[in-house]
Simulated assay, not measured.
Amino acid sequence: MINDDRIIADLQELEAFLVAIESGMMGLSNAAGVVLATNNSDGRRFVAVLDDDNQLVLGRWVTEEIFHSGQDMVRHGPKRKH
């Protein structure tokens, strides 16, 4: 479950989030992957950081536009690196 009401609304925010995950700025020691997903109960879109068991470690809501336009960035990683 995502308890954070912040919504990633542009590609720069998504990129900054991904860079923070990759660089360890979020303090997540068990992050194994990042995916875009849909909440089954209400259909809201989110970016999810998963552990080795595919369990949600951290999530942020994203707009519908970012869900679609940010897929390549999530799949291939951000252009700017840490």
Rank of each mutant, 00 (worst) to 15 (best):
M1P: 02
M1S: 14
I2L: 04
D5L: 13
R6G: 04
I7G: 02
I8Y: 01
A9C: 08
L11I: 07
L11A: 01
L11Q: 05
Q12C: 08
E13W: 04
L14M: 01
A16N: 12
A16G: 13
F17C: 13
S23E: 04
M26Q: 09
L28K: 03
G33N: 07
G33V: 01
V34P: 01
V34N: 02
V35N: 13
V35W: 09
L36W: 05
A37E: 05
A37I: 00
T38S: 06
N39W: 14
N40M: 15
S41G: 00
D42Q: 00
D42V: 04
R44K: 14
R44I: 07
R45K: 13
R45Y: 15
F46K: 09
F46G: 10
V49M: 09
L50Y: 06
D51W: 11
D51A: 08
V57D: 11
W61C: 02
V62Q: 10
V62G: 05
E64G: 01
E65W: 12
I66S: 04
F67N: 08
G70V: 11
Q71P: 00
Q71R: 09
Q71N: 12
V74C: 00
V74D: 02
G77H: 09
G77M: 05
P78Q: 15
K81M: 12
K81L: 15
